[in-house]
Design a protein around this nucleic acid. Structure first.
Length: 605
RNA sequence: GCUGGCGUAGCUCAACCGGUAGAGCACCUGACUUGUAAUCAGGAGGUCGCGGGUUCGAGUCCCACCGCCAGCUCCA
């Protein structure tokens, strides 16, 4: 509520000021109204829809045939900021359903009429209107007292959006913007955005020579030697952890006859995301999906189920934990591909755990511990989210009731705090998603624990129990990194390219001061490589300063200066990555440095 | 897939109203033999994303395609 609304009941009253986050959210809401009002003035005939605030600002969706150009955006921004200078008061009033329909009907606002009907259909008694100048919108509020309180509005971009988020509906034009109380706060935000762009994994991937893309293979990564080192180091770390925790690693085929996908349910629910291989013998007039006889796997689960059922299983084998890092292909829509975070070919640190129902709680507890251990090692904090059955699903409701109850109980027993995501489960079962926050506070969905009662039915999986009778196991799908590709993308941004020693593709660079120091550099490199470390010698004839600079820009954890003093002492002078005097660690014996860096090169989980 | 924007040397970016492509870094060669964030000089490098069209003439204007970016829908 705002200052113009009468207090009509008792309750908690807290006051929002320019200092509180709610205050900022409020002016952004004001800003959305202001932008909508000037858009309708500058571009008559444009219809308004909705204009909510976001974490970073606000947007407003408009229906207009002609798209807004970047020049339009500038004009709108200028006009919006003039409205602020006019300091027009916001005034609030309430109307009935009929009054609201009459008002917006007269204005010709089709989308608003639809929203009004919805609001009253949900049981509202009246609608609150907010006016500033001669423009009116209905809105829950609250709003500030006048447009002058907004400070400054900056428009960011135009994008297409669908009415009510459904791609079958009308395409609208969404104008993104943000607002702040002062220009100074806006400038600070802009600077912060620029800083975030500097650590964009696509930019750093190029600068640090980690990976590349080619138009001939959109959505598929070329990993350079450096990037491959990141990839294989993470693979090895996950392998080691899995082996230490009762998993076995297997490899399965990449291509399957479609009979597998029909059995798993993917053919019905997931086919449009699968790369199909057409049968050359098939009738060319048939639609593609009928000519396809085989497909690249988009997930590992069906392969694992086949693997499980190839042998008769005993209850003594359970939980049977299968780990696989195979290559997967998903035919993602062109518009969604983005750097490493959304690709068509990727590898997951995937596992499927076959177990008895009585083992679910214990296994979920073990898994959450493993997940926490891994994220901790990277300094990533996380939140657990419990996701229930989606609209597109397989299996009957009784099975879903059972699966959701079992997974939820298991989650509660871990004592972990969690949030709910209704309808966000996988099509075969409910799941716990782990959303991590990186060093600049961005959220990513990474790990997942999914409980599946459907697959064992479809694949007719069984095990022989202690009673010598056949029983149905349950399956848990789990991943911790999620996919190597996305995880590496996130790590690049999280570390801003400054990888810890154990991950860094080049862990140390040796800088001989002049050619007569190369022999000692070779010897140091040999010793370090024997210790399993990744080192290179800078053989350029540049000055030391230039070599230091190159090593710094390449974000190599240690640069070792090797000159007369070091040769004499059979030592090295390490300079830790980073600026300032503390970066130079001074002359130390090679053995001492080896002990230090070897410890830092250990896998931390 | 949809809406909008963009695509010039390995990278970052110039090139007016349409007049025939330029810089820095990187690379190669030579000189310099260097002590904690850039040594100097020279050289080489481009079918302006691809294919059509308009024009005396297209990097520049138009069309189609490919790719990338910001979103939407979807998602590891």
């Amino acid at each position: 509520m705002d200052l113009s609304k009468p207090l009509d009941h008792d309750g908690q009253l807290s006051i929002f000021t320019t200092k509180s986050p709610e205050g900022l959210d409020l002016v952004r809401h004001d800003a959305a109204h202001i932008v909508a009002s000037v858009v309708q003035r500058l571009y008559p005939g444009t219809q308004v829809t909705i204009g909510p605030t976001t974490d970073d600002g606000f947007y407003y969706d408009f229906a207009r045939d002609k798209p807004f150009t970047p020049e339009d955006l500038e004009a709108i921004e200028r006009a919006a900021n003039e409205e602020i200078r006019k300091d027009l008061p916001f005034s609030r009033s309430e109307v009935t359903r009929e009054e609201a329909l009459a008002l917006f009907g007269e204005l010709g606002e089709k989308f608003k009429l639809e929203i009004i009907e919805d609001i009253f259909a949900k049981g509202a008694r009246s609608l609150s209107l907010y006016r500033h100048g001669d423009w009116v919108d209905f809105c829950l509020g609250p709003h500030g007292p006048s447009t002058g309180r907004v400070g400054v509005i900056k428009l960011l971009s135009v994008a297409g959006a669908y009415w009510r988020g459904d791609h079958r509906n009308a395409q609208l034009q969404r104008i993104y913007g943000t607002a702040f109380f002062t220009q100074k706060e806006l400038d600070a935000w802009v600077t912060q955005q620029e800083e975030a762009r500097k650590r964009d994994h696509r930019k750093l991937g190029k600068e640090l020579d980690l990976f590349a893309f080619h138009p001939a293979a959109p959505g598929a990564v070329f990993w350079t030697a450096n990037g491959t080192m990141l990839f294989t180091t993470l693979q090895a770390a996950m392998r080691r952890m899995c082996l230490a925790n009762g998993y076995i690693e297997i490899k399965t085929p990449l291509l399957y006859n479609k009979m597998l996908w029909e059995k798993s349910g993917h053919w019905g629910k997931y086919r449009e995301n699968m790369f199909l291989i057409l049968d050359p013998e098939a009738d060319p007039t048939l639609p593609e999906e009928e000519r396809a006889s085989i497909s690249l796997k988009p997930m590992n689960c069906p392969s694992h189920h086949l693997f499980y059922e190839m042998k008769r299983r005993s209850y003594r084998e359970l939980p049977l934990r299968l780990h696989t890092q195979d290559v997967l292909h998903r035919n993602e829509a062109t518009g969604v591909l983005s750097g490493l975070t959304r690709v068509r070919q990727f590898q997951q640190d995937d596992a499927h755990i076959y177990l008895m129902e009585s083992q679910i709680a214990d296994e979920v507890a073990r898994l959450t511990k493993l997940i926490a251990k891994v994220y901790d090692a990277f300094g990533l904090s996380f939140v657990a989210k419990f996701a229930t059955r989606p609209e597109q699903k397989i299996g009957d409701d009784a099975l879903w009731d059972k699966a959701e109850a079992a997974l939820r109980d298991a989650l509660e027993q871990t004592g972990l705090a969690y949030e709910l995501k209704p309808g966000d489960g996988a099509f075969y079962g409910p799941k716990i998603d782990f959303d991590v926050a990186d060093s600049i506070g961005r959220k990513w969905q990474l790990g997942t624990i999914q409980l599946d009662y459907n697959a064992p039915e479809r694949f007719d999986l069984g095990y022989i129990g202690s009673d010598n009778a056949s029983h149905r196991p349950v399956v848990i799908h789990r991943a911790i990194y999620g996919s190597f590709e996305r995880f590496i993308g996130i790590l690049i941004e999280h570390y801003a390219g400054n990888f810890p020693v154990w991950l860094a593709p080049e862990q140390a660079r040796l800088l001989p001061v002049s050619e007569r120091h190369h022999a000692w550099a070779e010897e140091v490199a040999g010793k370090m490589r024997e210790a399993g470390l990744r080192v290179e010698i800078d053989r350029s004839h540049g000055k030391l300063g230039a070599m230091i600079r190159d090593a710094q820009l390449a974000k190599i954890p240690y640069a070792l200066v090797l000159g007369d003093k070091e040769v004499e002492a059979r030592g090295v002078s390490p300079r830790k990555h980073g600026t300032g005097k503390e970066a130079d660690l001074g002359l130390m014996p090679l053995e001492a440095f080896l002990t230090q860096i070897t410890a830092e090169a250990e896998i931390p989980y």
